[in-house]
Design a protein around this nucleic acid. Structure first.
Lengths: 206, 206
DNA sequence: GTCTATACTGAGATAGAC
DNA sequence: GTCTATCTCAGTATAGAC
């Protein structure tokens, strides 16, 4: 059946999002999808290649949307602001979260698990390059090294808040407002990017 | 030998930091430590309990140092600023990173892997409560819900930047300047915490 | 009290029958 | 294309040697 592939992809997406990649066994996937053990290896080759397909099936449209928004921002003349550029990156994720929570949660989990390096380098290259360039134009005074560091912080904040992450405060926002959380992240990250770069504070003494 | 325990703990700390918790097998640990398979279960009970001991052995002093700095800040009169409170949390980590990179890298990895929830709730409760309270005093205008969200972002940024994380820009700072990266995180997070809370920007149209 | 040998279950992967 | 059987290696449990 052609359904087999789809059933595997759908089930894997759900389980990876709920439990993470490492914690989800192929046997659980095939069990809930109602297919045979070997069919995953027949259709995808390995657990990691299955992950690759699961990610790509949904990430493609999100990345296209990101480029679209960036195009529009840059076409409208002038240099897009920090919030606008960050929004071009995160807003499509928030929209995707509205339609399909599971996928966004899965992406956050996977980034946290470090299971995505290869996939990202393969398919996200265009988007990340465009976003980085636009952000640096919006923040011309920020040294490139500091810029990259802050980009790193931002991705970490996203990955951690989008998946369950550790419930630091014991109260953290419920799963319902995932899209809203991503919007708030834009505000937070923009504030972080605007912080003065040179102030390497000595905190020790008051 | 009493050495067995120590050898297991040291080897586990190193391997968990280098490869992550899930990717490190007990058989690899016992192999490199030169002890028997069952000795881990004899001394620790399970892989997860071994992790718990590895973390606690080093996190205890770091947490004490955090409370010490907080005490000093609050004793010196006046309300400590955002950078000072964040510094009280992150500076001891940076110091620990200077003495023992592996431990800090391991903590970041574990938070990212979501392997630490239980451990944190057990042993970090005092520190997290104190830090949260101090930060909210420094930011009286920030709604508690927004505050918690931003705390979440900050932890994510830390976890992601402290371990290898995903190399977003293709250049990200090398492992050598771990302590410095943590210092920069204070600046970034402080900027994020100070961002206006209400501005839920609509990014869509310009 | 410590450590060793060994066995059990379940994981991902593969070869080959149908 | 699909399924069965099987391989290797993981984490875990236990019986017993020193």
């Amino acid at each position: 059946m052609l359904d087999t592939r789809q059933k595997i992809l759908d089930t894997a997406e759900r389980l990876f999002g709920e439990q993470g990649y490492a914690a989800t066994s192929l046997r659980q996937i095939i069990g809930e999808a109602g297919v045979n053990v070997a069919s995953i290896h027949y259709h995808f080759g390995s657990k990691e290649e299955l992950l690759d397909e699961v990610v790509m099936r949904k990430a493609g449209p999100v990345n296209e949307r990101r480029l679209e928004i960036l195009d529009r921002l840059e076409a409208s003349g002038g240099v897009p602001g920090v919030e606008e550029v960050l929004g071009a990156f995160f807003q499509p994720m928030a929209e995707a979260a509205g339609q399909n929570r599971r996928f966004v949660a899965m992406m956050g989990r996977l980034i946290s698990e470090g299971m995505i390096q290869g996939i990202v380098q393969k398919h996200f290259a265009t988007v990340t390059a465009r976003i980085s360039a636009a952000l640096q134009r919006a923040l011309p005074e920020l040294p490139p090294e500091e810029f990259m560091l802050r980009m790193h912080f931002t991705i970490g904040a996203m990955a951690h808040s989008v998946c369950g992450g550790m419930d630091w405060t014991g109260a953290g926002g419920g799963p319902a407002d995932l899209g809203r959380r991503i919007e708030r992240l834009v505000t937070f990250a923009a504030g972080g990017f605007r912080a003065p770069a040179t102030a390497t504070t000595k905190i020790e003494e008051k």
